[in-house]
Simulated scan of single mutants.
Amino acid sequence: MSSTQILLLASPDDFLLELARQDAVAAWRQAHPAGEVVAFDEAPPAARLVQELASPSLFAAERLLVVVDARPYFGASRRAAADALAESLEKLPLADVGLVMSVVTKTAPDGSLADAIARRGEARFIGLPEAPKPWEEARVSPKQRQVLASLVARAAPGLEGNEVVDALCEAYGFRPRELAKAAERLALSGEVDAATVRAQAGAGERQLREIEDALQHRDGGRFA
């Protein structure tokens, strides 16, 4: 984030998006330790965002605006506002202000606003790894496991052992937020082994896993 003034983050998964946004803000803070971060949980009207981008901060020489949920800017019904915002982003000097926008979406955002951001800064789509095929008899694919293992390492350093990661993947599947929270609880408990993972997951998680497996294998009769 320190090398670009505008960053658009998009992903189908809200947790992976949240982590990417946190990393971008942390990188900006490190590059601008005296700077100010202003976060909008909901997207402000486009005209107000432009005004904020054009107005100097009263409290710091540099500042970063963060729009946590930028979906309204990319909706089909807001095309005119998005076009106006795109035009402003192309023209504003942005000398002492940066902008991070994040949006939960199944596909990479397109349109005039996404194009303007890509030209002026960076538009980054965080896709999801491919799920295992039904015939592979696997809870997660190797690429999914790689992503989940990185989340375990981030949430609870020291739990990177294959047995523990495998147990977490088996218990929670590709549900990044739930798995990361489970890794944190496991680290706090001090019991770092596969048996504790299974006990921590509980019957509810096991039943959910069985339902997911049944749906994956089209075996509805198993629950009759």
Rank of each mutant, 00 (worst) to 15 (best):
F59W: 09
A31C: 00
A26K: 11
F223Q: 12
D166P: 15
S189F: 07
R78C: 10
D115K: 14
G161N: 06
G158K: 05
V38K: 02
D13M: 14
V38M: 12
L89E: 03
V197S: 03
R175C: 12
S102C: 07
P129H: 05
K91W: 07
G158F: 09
G161T: 02
F40K: 02
L65V: 01
R29M: 03
V67W: 00
V68K: 13
D213R: 15
L8Q: 04
A118S: 08
A171Y: 01
L7R: 04
L58A: 03
I6H: 00
A171D: 07
K106N: 09
A149G: 09
E62S: 04
A108Y: 13
V164C: 07
H32F: 10
S141V: 08
A70V: 10
E62Y: 06
V147E: 09
A118R: 04
D193E: 08
A131T: 08
Q216I: 09
A61I: 00
R29H: 10
H32Y: 08
A39N: 07
A108C: 15
E184S: 05
L208K: 10
S189A: 01
G202Q: 15
E130N: 12
T107I: 11
A194H: 06
A156F: 05
A156C: 01
A84G: 08
E62C: 01
E210A: 11
L188I: 11
L65D: 00
S112A: 15
V37T: 15
V97Q: 00
L16C: 11
V38P: 15
L16E: 00
L148K: 08
F15G: 14
L151V: 08
R63A: 04
R71G: 13
N162W: 12
E36A: 07
L8P: 03
D13K: 06
Y172W: 09
V147G: 03
H32D: 01
